[in-house]
Nucleic acid binder design. Structure first.
Length: 611
RNA sequence: GCCGGCAUAGCUCAGCUGGUAGAGCACCUGAUUUGUAAUCAGGCGGUCGUCGGUUCGAAUCCGACUGCCGGCUCCA
């Protein structure tokens, strides 16, 4: 625990002490420091709301002013249990009821491990520590939020109230943190998405369903062009597949019914519905029949792979044909839980920059490598450095995976080897694998510190098995191919959401929906402005003229707010000399230059995809 | 899905303890013809998320639903 974490953890104790002064019956569970501060989980019949914060904070301030010493003591397990039963843990002295969560935590501490208590003032807590010397060291703090959390993160456990706070050694640092919070709020993709008209989510269309407005569509199209160029270079073949497919397809793949909870319900043909209705079939019967395959229907596709598999399988394949790399910007639909939906980053319909590689086992390692290089290249193209790589492995002892242990071993080894050569640190995380195989994920953070998986590379021995795929080997015998699933962006929606925050809405020239805005000094120069905008458009540059009656200052202000990369001021001087006065979004006034020269420069900057 | 909070004009928000709505920006119109981050004036615009209840009377109180926000759980 570093010094700041120590301070924040200590502040959690102060929070608990303060709350106990107000609500003596409060039962506390865990109160650790976290990246964004600290929290303490509390079981309390009073519903804590932000309105209670001033009252709690005032009590906390008193405790800080009292400068209570943190005193550590080591006790035997039996003594600790005794204290817990007497309700003296996470409490101000004793009370009639046991400290039930603390007792439970105590039971979870392995035999032989030291059990320590920390006391400050009247407050004693079961705690491994460490802490600052005294409460007076907590220079500045604030409560930030109240949320709910299951005890120990388990849905079956009672829900506790989680009180979040932040603390720093000095008031100045707290103030700085507040300013940064505000800045983060300003670059939130949901706010910028509305202000810059990049996307829209409409209640009547449905929660978690993204409408790409014209400006957002441009960004997406540019990204797709960028990826497509890369794919052509690397020997991928582009395909298109429908949005729905028969349930039979997904029974074979295993997506239905095992993942029914996270899919839109099946579409059943009208005739089938009528027939079943006449038979007096209930909704429950229908669901059961769909599951068993006694009734047919269609599914909005939750993944593209089964369709790509069918393309692979539509003709005989020789080992000479492999690897077969099928790519598609494929839109998939998943029934995400309502509480999980979030702007563009967690949605119910999204387009993956998907591809499936069908390879021989010998080719597997090199192809994984190739996919990882592609993902890395994509991240590099946007100067996204703040990501981590996660190697998702099997959870030992879990039964949620399909396939043979030997296949898993080889696939995990191949992924690990590829990850090692990436040149970026990665973490191995058991339990993070897909049900059909291990994966390598690229994970980034959004403005409020939440992690999102973007690019992903996954190895799959399972689907080729389920669909009985084969190719003819040099021995003239059928062999099973290995599949690699990969998506460098992950999904267009999530990637654009993260990208908006990455650039704070100020997209580089090549991605900017509006690349150049012509600002006539007055409408006397409308003719020249029209000529200039035509020159840009002829060069394939997205340019518009601000024809409003505003003064130049107002036009510039608006263009800056709209984050247009280049503003072109045209007035009498420019019209006469066939020049343009250039103002860039980031550098300001760049002076005048000949129109043709500047158009060329812009074209080049776009072509190179400069940042 | 669960817990808590929120929902007033296109956007940001005001509207105290119930007496049928208001500002700024945006938009429209007019005047101004403008030189590197806001010209002035006027105008349009809301069955206060939806449905139901309490009340003589509901934006305001209660309930349900929908959506959003923060967590938790989940995430092929």
């Amino acid at each position: 625990m570093n010094d700041l974490e120590k301070l924040r953890h200590s502040c959690a104790h102060v929070l608990a002490e303060a709350m106990l002064r107000i609500w003596p019956e409060a039962q506390f569970a865990a109160g650790p420091p976290v990246e964004q501060g600290f929290y303490y989980d509390v079981d309390l019949s009073h519903r804590v709301s932000p309105e209670d914060f001033p009252k709690i904070e005032a009590e906390m301030a008193k405790i800080v002013a009292e400068d209570q010493k943190f005193e550590r003591s080591v006790v035997s397990r039996a003594d600790a249990m005794e204290l817990g039963r007497a309700g003296k843990l996470a409490a101000l002295g004793g009370r009639g009821v046991p400290s039930r969560y603390k007792l439970d935590i105590l039971e979870g501490i392995p035999e032989g491990e030291e059990i320590s208590l920390y006391r400050n003032g009247a407050f004693t807590d079961l705690c491994a520590g460490p802490h600052v010397d005294s409460t007076g060291r907590i220079g500045a703090f604030a409560l930030t939020a109240v949320a709910s959390a299951y005890y120990k993160g388990d849905e079956k456990n009672p829900q506790l109230q989680r009180i979040y706070g932040i603390a720093f050694p000095t008031a100045g640092e707290l103030e700085k943190w507040r300013v940064m919070q505000e800045e983060a709020r300003q670059r939130d993709h949901r706010k910028l998405g509305r202000e810059l008209q990049l996307f829209h989510v409409d209640e009547t269309v449905g929660a978690g369903l993204i409408l790409w407005t014209p400006k957002g569509a441009i960004v997406r199209q540019e990204l797709q062009n960028f990826i497509s160029e890369e794919l052509r270079r690397q020997g991928y073949e582009q395909v298109f597949t429908p949005h729905i497919g028969r349930l039979e397809l997904y029974r074979t793949s295993g997506h239905y019914p095992y993942y029914s909870d996270s899919q839109y319900p099946p579409l059943v043909e009208r005739e089938t519905l009528h027939r079943l209705a006449e038979e007096g079939c209930s909704c429950a019967d229908l669901a059961a029949r769909l599951e068993k395959g006694e009734a047919e229907g269609y599914l909005l596709k939750p993944m593209n792979c089964p369709m790509h598999i069918k393309i692979f399988d539509s003709q005989p394949r020789s080992y000479r044909d492999l690897p077969v790399r099928l790519a598609e910007f494929g839109t998939v639909y998943r029934w995400e839980q309502s509480g999980e939906l979030n702007g563009m980053t967690r949605v119910r319909g999204f387009t993956q920059d998907d591809a499936h590689l069908f390879v021989t086992e010998d080719q597997m390692a090199a192809e994984i490598q190739g996919c990882l290089d592609l993902v890395k290249k994509v991240f590099g193209a946007f100067d996204m450095k703040d990501y981590r790589v996660r190697l998702g492995l099997r959870e030992p002892g879990s039964d949620k995976y399909v396939g043979r242990a030997g296949d898993w071993d080889r696939a995990e080894a191949a992924c690990r080897d590829a990850a090692k050569t990436l040149g970026v640190p990665y973490t191995e995380e058991p339990g993070e694998a897909a049900f059909y195989g291990p994966k390598i994920d690229f994970v980034v953070r959004d403005v409020i510190g939440r992690e999102w998986q973007l690019g992903t590379v996954q190895v799959d021995f399972q689907l080729p098995e389920r669909f009985d795929l084969h190719y003819t080997g040099p021995d003239n015998k059928p062999h099973r191919p290995v599949m690699i699933h990969r998506a460098p962006f992950g999904s267009m929606e999530r990637f654009v959401g993260v990208l908006i925050e990455h650039f704070a809405g100020a997209f580089p020239l090549w991605l900017a929906p509006e690349q150049v805005r012509i600002l006539p000094v007055s409408d006397k120069f409308a003719d020249y402005a029209a000529e200039v905008v035509a020159a840009f458009r002829a060069a394939g540059v997205r340019a518009v003229v601000d024809t409003s009656q505003d003064k130049l200052g107002a036009k510039i202000r608006l263009a800056q707010i709209n984050k247009v990369p280049y503003m072109i001021v045209v007035g009498g001087k420019e019209a006469e000399s066939r020049q343009v006065s250039v103002r860039s979004r980031k550098a300001g006034d760049e002076g005048s230059k000949p129109l043709e020269e500047f158009v060329e420069r812009i074209k080049q900057e776009i072509g190179e995809r400069l940042l």
